[in-house]
Design a protein around this nucleic acid. Structure first.
Length: 488
RNA sequence: GGCGGCAUAGCCAAGCGGUAAGGCAGGGGCCUGCAAAGCCUUUAUUCCCCAGUUCGAAUCUGGGUGCCGCCUCCA
């Protein structure tokens, strides 16, 4: 089967072919760095991280670029209210972004261009648009003339007439600069600086770039005139991506991207989560409560184009599901020694299963379908592990188990799902709660309980178990009187 | 008002014309001093409703209903 993707540009699912065989140039619209990232940003980054991982796994060389918007009204506003520079705000939240993404296991992009580092490129592009007649200056601003670009609206499926019908009465009233525009739908490529604002010199005077031009400039500088895949949140399709197309394609006369992919929004309580609605959850707040891998699994369970509703119930389900996968992934950690894998680390994976996985995921990145295969493998390994634990031997051969484990680990890696291997405790918990008891204290109590059980003093044994349970320590009694434990 | 998307078990979710994946939760059994974990087993004659096409439809067509997103900054 061949990889097919849903292209927003054609509104159809179509076979994917890169411009240059084996190579993919991919651009993701990143974030405006004026605050901590919320889980909507998290979903976007996670989804495209996995797409990128999958494409690599499928054998493509992927060049992946994601931008930071560090020139923006909201950054300026925050800088002014805190009495610091825009740079200071940007820098702070770029660092926070990297911290959050590292915790979520999002791989680093190949480049992170910033608006402040792309000023020349943006100005060149604006000049080019001006000289080609697509842009006009107006009192220190420069606007893009939407009517000069006949294909305007081709991405979002809008016609200028429809926009007019919807926006009539709103655009004129809300935009005090409207009088400078020749058409209400023209948008700013360059904005004249207002007094006290951070600004940059240009041939149109002191000012700063408009929002959309940065991506047009960055794509061109980092990846070229036509790229393979341009991705971003569905809410960016209009006007941001539409305007990017208008700018880039008018300037180069070539398509900006062959495939446009958009991810669905995150909802909370059935409503879209957005800054403007005030119902957002930041990634760092969420990660106080939940293992990053739970969040990853939760998000990957829903197809990337569908909306996903964040609920406690949903996250609880993902937590339990993650425990199952983790059990499988830790198979080598927990049983490899017993199976004598040390000098012969398993390297072989099951080609048939990998083919099944690829067939499913090739269908517009059907991650949920792919996860079903991971669960299949993880459950088999868990079952065999349980046999090893209780009976000292498994049903399958060491080689078979090695292949299964290796296949699972390889496919889980495509999804960025990795258990944290902890030094403490002899089984893995979900890393959520922390207890006041040290490992030594737990161990001591367990030894007391083992002794009590030997004397058939079950009241005392149960008392100790309850005490540990209250601290979030779970016990597993094994045949032969051994007890394993983990933190819940 | 315009444009677009989605409706599948208690919850989440795949499925894209051939007779309902998977996860979570639940029921029953095994194991256990009792648990926990694990194992086995079970849970939608049916896919929002109504028509139609077809030998055959959750899947295609038409018409309803409901929910959501975009049209303004937004991942």
């Amino acid at each position: 089967m061949t990889l097919t993707v849903f292209n927003s540009l054609t509104d159809r699912q179509e076979p994917f072919t890169p411009i240059e065989p084996g190579k993919i140039r991919m651009y993701c619209c990143g974030i405006t760095v004026y605050d901590y990232c919320h889980i909507g940003h998290g979903r976007t980054c996670l989804v495209w991280d996995v797409v990128r991982r999958y494409l690599r796994w499928r054998g493509y060389e992927v060049q992946y670029v994601q931008n930071f918007t560090d020139i923006d009204d909201k950054i300026l506003k925050r800088a002014q209210s805190e009495g610091v520079s825009m740079e200071e705000i940007s820098e702070r939240f770029i660092q926070a972004y990297f911290e959050d993404m590292e915790r979520l296991g999002v791989a680093k992009a190949d480049a992170y261009p910033r608006a402040t580092h792309t000023l020349d490129g943006m100005q060149r592009l604006v000049s080019e648009l001006e000289s080609k007649g697509y842009a006009y200056p107006a009192g220190g601003d420069v606007y893009y003339s939407v009517r000069k670009f006949p294909e305007y609206g081709k991405l979002s499926g809008r016609k200028l007439e429809d926009l007019k019908a919807g926006a009539s009465g709103r655009v004129e009233e809300t935009d005090p600069d409207t009088d400078k525009k020749r058409d209400p739908f023209d948008f700013a490529l360059w904005k004249a600086a207002k007094p006290g604002e951070t600004s940059y010199p240009s041939r149109w005077g002191e000012g700063r770039p408009g929002w959309h031009i940065e991506c047009s400039a960055m794509v061109k500088e980092e990846l070229g005139e036509t790229i393979d895949i341009h991705v971003g949140g569905g809410d960016l399709m209009f006007p941001h991506h539409e305007n990017e197309i208008a700018q880039s394609e008018a300037a180069t006369g070539k398509p900006l991207a062959r495939y446009w992919l958009h991810n669905g929004m995150v909802k909370v309580g059935g409503e879209k989560m957005a800054k403007s609605l005030g119902n957002f959850i930041t990634i760092r707040d969420l990660l106080e409560q939940r293992d990053p891998m739970i969040v990853r699994l939760f998000i990957l369970q829903t197809h990337y184009r569908k909306p996903v509703d964040f609920t406690e119930e949903g996250l609880d389900g993902a937590r339990n599901g993650w425990n199952t996968l983790k059990e499988g992934l830790l198979f080598q950690e927990n049983y490899g020694k017993q199976l004598g894998w040390e000098d012969n680390p398993p390297k072989q994976s099951d080609e048939q299963i990998k083919q099944r996985f690829a067939d499913v995921v090739d269908d517009d990145f059907n991650f949920a379908g792919g996860l079903a295969i991971l669960f299949e493998l993880a459950k088999e390994l868990r079952k065999e592990g349980n046999l090893l634990l209780h009976q000292g031997r498994a049903e399958a051969s060491s080689e078979e188990l090695a292949v299964k484990w290796h296949t699972l680990a390889e496919l889980a890696d495509v999804f960025g799902l990795k258990p944290e291997v902890k030094e403490t405790g002899n089984l893995q918990g979900d890393g959520k709660a922390d207890t006041s008891l040290s490992d030594e204290q737990v161990q001591a109590l367990i030894e007391q309980r083992v002794a009590a059980r030997k004397e058939k003093n079950f009241a005392e044994a149960d008392r100790i178990r309850d005490e540990l349970q209250a601290q979030g320590i779970k016990l597993i009694d094994q045949p032969g009187g051994n007890t394993r434990w983990y933190r819940e």
